[in-house]
């Protein structure tokens, strides 16, 4: 991998330049929670000043810029008994600034499903191909457990990845497009001093992880504790509201619905992000529901994340961002649930 550094001054110029030519998405705050903490989200930014490079964590992951919550897969022109199907993949070049290592790792996991497995997803592919990602390192928050999930560092899947080393960013470069852009802003070769500072910052980041989740035998535990009472305990609290899946950077389950206009001359086939926690996720036409209870649905979400995905791709489908834990009003977090599972096992 190539590394360079860029001054913060020049980085600002680069963002301003990118803003002139492209749509740029970045972390912005709009509201505050009760504790006075800013609530961040990834939104379109219009000026460098709107971009909050010191943000903590976005409430929702930026996955919707790759897998929109809703998208039209096909449209149809209907005419009496006949119809014509039309499919256009959205081509919308843009830049996303500020994605964390965990979020980029989340995309790499989605890549496994959407690009590298059978039946590649062209809609995802079109967005992925037309997005330049500029990642950003940060000091872990209290509840970040990406280190346990081995997603605290990232080596590909981005254009540039920035680490703040004082007055400059240490930049990992991973694509030609990004390389060309960076070089237009006096990016300089890494000096020995830069490298020392980078090492110090990285060590500091590493030393600040507070939350650990033990996933050593988690896949086996998911099977062994399939009938465990802990699922009922957490399921009892679960609101089956799907918030966890919506904010999650890797949840990709969806539903498809078709509808027509009022004159039955046009139809659309629409994909919408769903959640396996929602009541009718596994309901079939005759009314039978394969997962009728909240605790069973909750269990399956974990089962998919920590067992099913591991089986298919030798990695779990969780990046340890704890967004689901934060968004869950009922206080269901992966850390709490997994700790509980491990405790039950030890008894």
């Amino acid at each position: 991998m190539l590394f360079k550094t860029i001054t913060k001054e020049n980085f600002k110029k680069m963002v301003e330049g990118l803003l002139e030519e492209n749509e740029v998405i970045g972390p912005r705050s709009r509201d505050q929670d009760l504790g006075g903490n800013k609530i961040y989200r990834f939104l379109k930014i219009n000026s460098f000043e709107e971009l909050e490079m010191d943000y903590t964590r976005s409430y929702s992951s930026p996955k919707n810029y790759f897998l929109p919550f809703e998208e039209d897969l096909a449209t149809y022109r209907l005419n009496d008994k006949d119809w014509e199907q039309e499919i256009r993949y959205t081509i919308h070049p843009r830049v996303i600034i500020g994605m964390r290592a965990c979020d980029i790792n989340a995309l790499l996991k989605l890549d496994q499903v959407m690009l590298k497995s059978v039946y590649p997803n062209p809609y995802y592919f079109a967005r992925r191909r037309n997005t330049l990602i500029i990642g950003l390192d940060h000091e872990p928050l209290e509840d970040c457990f990406c280190r346990s999930m081995n997603t605290d560092t990232v080596f590909h899947g981005f254009g540039l990845f920035l680490t703040d080393i004082g007055d400059r960013y240490f930049v990992a470069i991973n694509s030609d497009t990004a390389y060309i852009i960076l070089n237009q802003f006096d990016a300089r070769e890494v000096t020995e001093e830069d490298q020392e500072r980078y090492k110090t910052v990285k060590k500091q980041i590493e030393s600040k992880f507070k939350t650990q989740v033990d996933i050593t035998i988690l896949p086996e535990l998911m099977d062994l504790e399939f009938e465990s009472e802990i699922w009922k305990k957490w399921g009892h609290k679960c609101l089956s509201c799907g918030s966890c899946a919506m904010v999650c950077p890797t949840c990709y389950c969806y539903g498809i619905e078709e509808d027509t206009n009022l004159t039955f001359t046009k139809a659309t086939k629409r994909r919408f992000l769903y959640s396996c926690n929602l009541l009718d996720f596994a309901a079939v036409a005759r009314g039978h529901n394969f997962r009728p209870d909240a605790h069973i649905r909750l269990k399956y979400r974990y089962y998919h994340k920590f067992r099913g995905f591991v089986e298919a791709f030798s990695q779990s489908l969780c990046v340890g961002c704890n967004r689901c834990g934060k968004a869950c009003l009922a206080g269901i977090s992966p850390k709490a649930v997994i700790d509980d599972l491990i405790k039950t096992e030890k008894k």
């Binding site: 009760l34 929702s60 904010v247 959640s275 968004a327």
Partner: peptide
């Protein structure tokens, strides 16, 4: 829809008003 409002609320990237008091 059988599911609650939260699904649509999160999809619109709203801040959770319960978090805001």
């Amino acid at each position: 829809p059988k599911y609650p409002v939260c699904v649509e609320c999160k999809q619109r990237l709203n801040s959770c008003v319960l978090d805001m008091g």
